[in-house]
């Protein structure tokens, strides 16, 4: 359902060319839980941004759900992002001026769903993350873990095929991080493909499959190797 063939991404300045990704080949099947690890600056986030259609690439082919996205225009890419992909960011990226209900409603508005459908989806997703009673609260009134759950609810409300999480527990304490991870695993068990970038090997071990990015090169690694890498 997601296939990358020989994807390369180069950042250019006047003086230097940086190869963020070089010849990435990857296939991800529906329902997988992939953990992407690697040292800082290795190209993890670039990989996630390209996967989430937030960045373009110079070379290669990217097929998402049977559709070659390489040549698509902004309008089409935005629609795919809205309908098929859900984002979870390390810093939550909730809109502080909006309450939880309105925060979750934003991507549904972009999709053009009716008010009634939106209401139903928002209530369902808030219930799923255990914040059903707090729809009218504002992000500032919640703990970090709760805010990340709202971000997950926002991603889930659109019923995406892929959930892309960039260090989803990076800003959380251990207990909250565990709760958020359990929630993500549960969502994955229900069928949503989960691709998570993390530095944390313990979290990475929860994934079905581990991918390591090193100097822009991507490779599958066995779970047993994760501990060694951490050392």
């Amino acid at each position: 359902m997601l296939k990358m063939n020989n994807i390369s991404k180069i950042y250019r300045t006047d003086l230097v060319e940086t190869h963020a990704l070089s010849g990435v080949n990857l296939t991800i099947e529906e329902g997988e839980f992939i953990a992407v690890t690697g040292p800082s600056g290795s190209g993890k986030t670039t990989f996630l941004n390209i996967t989430g259609l937030l960045e373009t690439f110079e070379e290669g082919q990217y097929i998402l759900d049977g559709e070659d996205v390489s040549q698509l225009q902004d309008k089409h890419l935005s629609r795919l992002r809205n309908e098929k992909i859900g984002f979870i960011f390390q810093g939550f990226n909730l809109i502080s001026d909006l309450n939880l209900y309105d925060n979750i409603e934003v991507p549904l508005i972009f999709r053009g769903l009716s008010k009634q459908t939106r209401k139903q989806r928002i209530e369902e997703s808030l219930e799923l993350v255990g914040l059903g009673s707090r729809a009218q609260h504002y992000p500032a009134q919640l703990s970090g873990g709760q805010q990340q759950r709202v971000a997950i609810a926002r991603a889930l409300a659109g019923k995406p095929r892929f959930l892309l999480a960039d260090e989803p527990t990076g800003n959380l304490d251990t207990m909250m991080a565990r709760q958020v991870m359990e929630l993500l695993q549960e969502i994955n068990r229900q069928g949503t493909t989960l691709i998570m970038v993390t530095h944390d090997n313990e979290l990475a071990q929860r994934a079905h499959r581990n991918i390591q990015i090193l100097d822009g090169q991507l490779s599958d690694i066995a779970k047993s190797q994760l501990t060694d890498l951490a050392v």
């Binding site: 989430g52 937030l54 902004d74 309008k75 890419l77 935005s78 629609r79 992002r81 809205n82 309908e83 984002f87 990226n93 809109i95 934003v106 991507p107 972009f110 999709r111 926002r154 659109g158």
Partner: peptide, 16 residues
């Protein structure tokens, strides 16, 4: 800029 970027990530196209 962050808000606009978030809108874009959540599916708003440039025209929107």
């Amino acid at each position: 800029a962050k808000l606009v970027s978030l809108y874009r990530a959540l599916g708003a196209n440039r025209a929107y």
